[in-house]
Design a protein around this nucleic acid. Sequence first.
DNA 1: TTTT
DNA 2: TTTT
Lengths: 155, 155, 155, 155
Amino acid sequence: MAGVNKVILLGNLGADPEVKYLEGDNVVANLRLATTESYKDRNGNRVDQTEWHDLELWGPQAKIAEQYLKKGSQIYVEGKIKSDTWQDDQGQNRKRTKIRVISFTMVGGKPEGMGGPGSTAPTASTSTPAKQATAMNTGGAPDISMDDADDDLPF
Amino acid sequence: MAGVNKVILLGNLGADPEVKYLEGDNVVANLRLATTESYKDRNGNRVDQTEWHDLELWGPQAKIAEQYLKKGSQIYVEGKIKSDTWQDDQGQNRKRTKIRVISFTMVGGKPEGMGGPGSTAPTASTSTPAKQATAMNTGGAPDISMDDADDDLPF
Amino acid sequence: MAGVNKVILLGNLGADPEVKYLEGDNVVANLRLATTESYKDRNGNRVDQTEWHDLELWGPQAKIAEQYLKKGSQIYVEGKIKSDTWQDDQGQNRKRTKIRVISFTMVGGKPEGMGGPGSTAPTASTSTPAKQATAMNTGGAPDISMDDADDDLPF
Amino acid sequence: MAGVNKVILLGNLGADPEVKYLEGDNVVANLRLATTESYKDRNGNRVDQTEWHDLELWGPQAKIAEQYLKKGSQIYVEGKIKSDTWQDDQGQNRKRTKIRVISFTMVGGKPEGMGGPGSTAPTASTSTPAKQATAMNTGGAPDISMDDADDDLPF
DNA sequence: TTTT
DNA sequence: TTTT
């Protein structure tokens, strides 16, 4: 049935991306993203509330994340909620929820360590012409709008 | 820092709302929402993938949900991701993620038992006049756009 | 530079789709969508405010719209804002804004005239196997999640 | 009827905000926002496509925009589509579409001239204590999540 | 556990 | 011009 499962996040990475290269050309990156909201409590005091999100990126996006993102990077993300369920050692049902990223884009300009000589490897755009070039042409700040609908990923 | 944490869902309820009346006028409703996505696997076979979401509504929204929603209802939801973390009996860190609903609206026409004179329980609108009226005045089909930003809820 | 231009609509069609078949296999459908919002004015009177949106769909989506949507259909839409600018006869700059639909889905169950014998033309799924089938397999209610990023449309 | 009319934009201002102070305490700000999308045409050449959006902000938001935003600022915006229709001199029906901003937030760090002690005009926070403080407390980078649903604006 |  |  027709359904919509959409997540939109804007926040900062709490750590560098964790990237794993799997067999069969697959790459997965895991990111920790903080979204912070400020509000006033009933006494008028400002309170910051931070929510931490586990993001998962696959394929070319994982590589771009590895290359350009690091702790503190501010990104805009579109994705969907995805949970894993399993039984733990005690036979209890467990559930873990993460965000499967559909697209993301860096905001707020280039990361500090970027733009220096050789820092944005010019070979990137030639080695993976179509999608990697996307990142190169924006001057280092990856602008990723590719849809992963056809990725046929193993889950 | 400025952050965005937004969820948009369109799906069907897997069960009737579970509503709890708490001390101090507070009401909370929990909903189970299914969003189903269809795609083709690498063999061209159609696969349905259902994600189950735990929704939480507070105050007037909880009452409207109790009044109008039931198993099978199709709703559009805006909310935000919210996790609880705690330690279980074994001293392990646990996390549970749910969707705090900001606004929702029923889609696909009125529920079957609705629309006749007096069919919308009059007690609901008297207990919380202002906002409940929102639902009443649309002829029974709740159209809820109220923001809960000022609810000053206990979390 | 990285940008986001996203529109999310849920509303009803004010008229049947207008479909044009162009040279070179292209098809375009134009829809008029109403989104209605209810609010209370300063006197506590309920006011309905309707916004009309011009939607534009291309290719397989246009055909699915032609086949399944009609005046009154309730749909959920994701798209982006797109304006045309030109000079009119008086040499004045003119601008027209429409929504280029990325994906849409019908909500609220099948249209009335659907489901009967022959009503969901079986030839549709064979003539455009991959994407048209998406609509067929949902039993008539089109569930369209295809991205049109690669359509390479003439604008 | 229940409807959804939601716009999400991430882009840069093409000019400084234009702010008008109206009778009766009302303030309105108009912004020009560019969202740029990159794609490859059928020859594999990268093409940048920029869409310009007319944003309209009212009340406290207009003042915050005036105070903190300027040409080039990168902002994330949520709003809704709103059109004005009228007849021009020739008796022709005309339509102009703009985005009524519900909330916005600056991205990419503070503006350059900001952050020092006293650098954020203290008069702003006193004139509209509650909401302006939102901007003050984030260290100058306005983080605005207020809903304008209750503004009861003159349109 | 929903829906088509 | 839709819908409730």
